[in-house]
Computed example of a mutant assay.
Amino acid sequence: MTNEHPTAAPLASVMDVRVHGTGPALLLAHGAGGGIEGNFGLVLDDLASDHTLIGPHYPGAGNTPAAATPLDLDELADAVVESAVSRGHERFVVMGESLGSAVAVRAATRHPERVRALVLTAGFPVADPALALAARLVTTLGKAGEWDAVARFACLSCLTDRDLAEMPEEALEAAVAATRASLPAGMVDHFALLPEIDVRGDLAGISVPVLVLAPTGDRLVLPDSSRRLARGIPGATLVEIPGGAHVLNEADRAVWLKHVRGLLGGL
C-alpha cells in the first residue's frame, strides 16, 4: 500500500483503461479507493450491450502506477477525458461515482465540447465535515499501515444498515478480508484529494443533461451533498435511491440502471 512505482510520464499515457462494448461512448470515473469493476461491475455488461464503455483507473488503481506527487483534480479530469479521445471518441457521457462525480463535473467544465451528459452518483460539490473527517481518518490509518482498520471502516461506510444488521459475524469478517485484499495502492492518495475538492464554482456553467443519483443510506457521502450538487446545476434531475449505501447493492443498482437508461434513451 505504498507508492512503489511513481508515475513519471503524463498521466493519460500510463493509465490502465478498460474498454468494453460498442456504440456511443460512456466514460466512467470511479471513486476513491475504487476501480471500474468495483464501482460499475454490476452494470458493465448491460451498458456495454449498446455502448462503448471506457474505464480509466486513477493512479494507484487497477494497473495504473501510483503517483509520485499529490493528485490534482484538473489533471485527473484531463487524463480521464484523454483516455476516451485517444481511443477515437470525440464526445461522450461521463458517469462519475463519489470522487468520480467531481472528476466528471470538472471534465464538463474543462472540456464542454466533449461532454454530452453527466451521471453523478453519491457525489458532492465540496467535502462536508463528515466526508472530510472520514478522508483524513483513512489517510492517517493508511499512512500508518493500519489496513485492517481501513477495511473495517470501509465496510462500515459502504454497506447498508440492513446488511450490517443481518450479516453473521463470520460473513462480516469475510467481507472485511475481501475489502482488505481489494484496497488499491493509491488509496491514501485518493482520499487525501477529497478534502481539497471544491467544484461549486463549476456547477452553474454546466448546460448538458445531468442526472444526480443520491443513495439515502450513504454514510460516507451524505445524501445532502448530492442534493446540493443537483441544486447547483441548472436543469439537473435528482433521483434518490431509498436506503441505498455508498456502494450500491444489486437491487439498488438495478434502480440506478433504470434511471440511467432513461437518460441515455433521451439523448
Rank of each mutant, 00 (worst) to 15 (best):
P6L: 13
R162K: 12
L11E: 02
G55M: 06
V85C: 06
E169A: 15
L44A: 01
V119R: 03
L164M: 14
L193I: 04
G186S: 07
T109K: 10
L76K: 01
A79P: 03
G201P: 03
A12Q: 09
I233F: 01
D161P: 00
A174W: 03
G123F: 07
I233H: 02
A68Q: 10
A132W: 04
G31I: 03
A122L: 07
L172S: 12
G123S: 09
W256P: 00
L28N: 01
P209C: 09
G60R: 04
A254G: 12
N249V: 07
H57K: 04
A175H: 11
A102G: 08
L99M: 14
N249K: 07
G232Y: 08
E173N: 14
I197M: 05
I54Q: 03
I233W: 00
L131G: 04
P168L: 11
V210M: 06
I241H: 08
E113M: 00
R200Y: 02
E250L: 12
A135D: 07
L137P: 00
E90I: 02
G186F: 07
T237N: 05
N39E: 05
L141S: 05
L159I: 00
P6T: 14
R180T: 04
S101A: 15
H89S: 08
P184H: 05
R227F: 06
D128M: 05
L131S: 04
V199F: 06
R253E: 15
A254P: 11
A171W: 10
A144Q: 15
A117K: 08
R227A: 14
E90W: 03
L131R: 04
S49A: 15
A84M: 05
L159K: 13
P223V: 02
M1K: 12
L11C: 05
A66T: 15
L26W: 08
V19T: 14
T139F: 06
A192K: 04
A134N: 14
D163G: 03
V81Y: 01
D128K: 07
P112H: 08
A61S: 14
A236I: 06
G123T: 06
L44F: 05
S157C: 13
E170I: 13
A178P: 00
G62Y: 04
V199T: 12
A117E: 08
S13L: 12
E196A: 12
L257H: 13
R200N: 05
V210I: 02
L211A: 08
V138R: 14
R261H: 15
A144R: 15
A61D: 10
L164N: 09
V208F: 08
A127K: 03
G243Y: 09
V260F: 11
L213R: 07
